[in-house]
Write a protein that binds this DNA or RNA. Structure first.
Lengths: 212, 212, 212, 212
DNA sequence: AATGAATGAGGCTTCATTCAT
DNA sequence: AATGAATGAAGCCTCATTCAT
């Protein structure tokens, strides 16, 4: 019969930062940066207020860490898809979109995107970082697809930059929606079928008319 | 020895609330609700902090007023377009989109939309109000167009709700973008040509294939 | 029968800063800068915490104000004494010392001096300011007296800077003592007789020996 | 396969407290008690924060230890000087002053004195202890000298307590100065010549006038 | 004996709100 | 109607202290 006095805390030096970042992301996305209390972040990560400061200098540093953490390898995967691809651009688009959904849209990165949309003007440098690392590279991937389609005669010759934005918009919306006005809807959008219709419309819209 | 009556303010009185709302909208959109100081709102409206409380009970009431103000007649105009319309759905879509741009996208309502995206989770009731008054009605307008097109055989039979979301996404993005990650880009998107490409793609995507 | 509802506060825009500075001086002198809580300063000045920030940017600004306030005209009076003086240096010394006691030693400036002795290393720029405005000018006054005495043959030719420091030391000690180790003594030093003995010793020490 | 016993720390153990006290003294003198962080004390002593608590119950205990450590044998030496002394009081004064400089003024005890001047009001009991052990005994030594001089007809009959304070003031100032406003001066006071002038003035001031 | 991760009370500072003028 | 001085709750952050390792 021994007492296990239930230690008040345990050491988690490596795990802590990630746990804190995850907690912070949740709350930043939900409430915004300013409206999020560090005490709540700490509580959600299961630590006390002070512990947070062992790993991050201040609230802004935590914010930056959240944004940086949310990027790491994702985009590279997308870029890898393009290497060596051969086949119709429409098919590549399908591949890219599904990959996007799996790695970004359905992941925590969606939260980071929502967060950046809300806070870009409050943190211009962080926004620029996110823009360069995520938005720009994402745009390049879609530009590659559009240009491939045009080159191969599948797609019409349309202004590429606009097409890219038009292709991205429904995806970004899907990602952001559930953290914002999506809360007003009783059930979430079904991503699966939404993306099917998206691809259908997009390919139809881009396609070179056979009869024309 | 008489004091000049100093007609310094004469007018005002019922202009005040609107000026305060306009100032608040600017700052709420830029910084978010929590990060906006009422003192700054008052200063931007050219009054003192205390004056604000003559017109609004508190910060949240001001927020609600901002959201409500941004709605009033806009949607009705859109709905009016649909009445008595006869002609191709594609043409109606073009009408609606240009009207949307003029009354919403290019107006201060765009800011309200950005604001609601950011703050929806912090103000569920306000979000619901905005959703009902703006989003739902906006969706209905676009649903009307899509259904008209289907009915008239111009458009394919696609899931209407998804089509509506897909049609709205590029418009909402256009509205939101300049208040968020658009700050990272040296020059703003050219709405005119963006919308042209949008209509081109959308109609192309929706269109019933002649050959099919 | 009317109720006078005992107003929660009244406006004191001009008086406030001085009251706050006086309160801060008391506490800074007693406890030191860091150990003094702004809430206590505010309470002693009869206001709330927030009011302090209407007049001072932060704790350090309050500290600087305390030091600056404690200087204003005092030294100038001392310097004025020297103008047009004619007579024995010993007599001038007596004048200066009594003046010093009245304007500095017995006033709140004594507290500022104690404060600077404690905090000089924490606030080098403020210390430098105090040094330039108070210490240096004080030293110059005493140097004037010593040099006058030497010039007139009353005093021996001793190193002036050392004499000045030696003359100042008992005065500064008197000023500081009551805010520091003086608290360990049941009754305060009697400044009057202390200064008499001081002058007696000082003049005796400086005097050119008649017989020598 | 054996682990090398790694004799990294071997000694220490009873050296630790002294190192910690020395580190604490430095920082307490420089920044004051409240503004000194125990983590910095530990770092300066080359140990970790936790180690400090193996030797001292808390911050205040460390403070007390600093004050006590700074006293031990010093005063006794001074008192020993007086035993069996025969000769002129002026000469004894010179002896005492030089001894004081060597054992107190030039040593770390000077820092303790500065510290007590700053913190006396925050730690009345510690101040009382210091007062009893250092100030009072120091005063007694100087009182002995003055009284000896009077008894032997070398010195005038002046109020002894005042004389003692006046004799101590330049010495205490010398000790304190370099930790406070001395930082504003480009070069430190030359103690050697300062004390020569001090003795010169003091003896001259105390001396019974031959001609009188 | 030593470490340093973890804690949480407490201080500085901000700002929504009130109210005397 | 308008002002802005005053308030005080609340959030960020520090640091003395504890304790698992």
């Amino acid at each position: 019969m021994e007492k296990k006095p239930e230690p008040r805390w345990e050491r988690r030096k490596e795990a802590r930062p990630h746990e804190l970042i995850a907690a912070a992301l949740d709350l930043f996305v939900e409430k915004g940066f300013t409206a999020t209390r560090l005490e709540d972040v700490a509580a959600r990560a299961g630590v006390s207020k002070g512990t947070l400061y062992l790993y991050f200098d201040n609230k802004e540093a935590l914010f930056k860490a959240v944004v940086q953490e949310g990027i790491v390898p994702v985009i590279e995967e997308g870029e890898a898809l393009l290497q060596h691809y051969e086949g119709p651009a429409a098919e590549l688009l399908r591949l890219v979109v599904h990959r996007w959904w799996e790695t970004v849209g359905a992941s925590q990165l969606a939260g980071v995107i929502k967060l950046m949309f809300s806070e870009a003007q409050n943190f211009p440098e962080v926004a620029q970082f996110h823009y360069d690392q995520v938005v720009l590279r994402g745009k390049r991937i879609f530009a590659f697809v559009v240009e491939l389609g045009i080159r191969q005669g599948e797609f019409r010759e349309l202004p590429v930059d606009h097409c890219v934005r038009l292709l991205l918009a429904p995806l970004l919306m899907l990602a952001i929606w559930r953290y914002s006005l999506g809360v007003c809807e009783s059930e979430p959008v079904d991503a699966e079928s939404y993306l099917e219709t998206y691809l259908d419309l997009a390919v139809g819209g881009l396609a070179a008319r056979s009869g024309a």
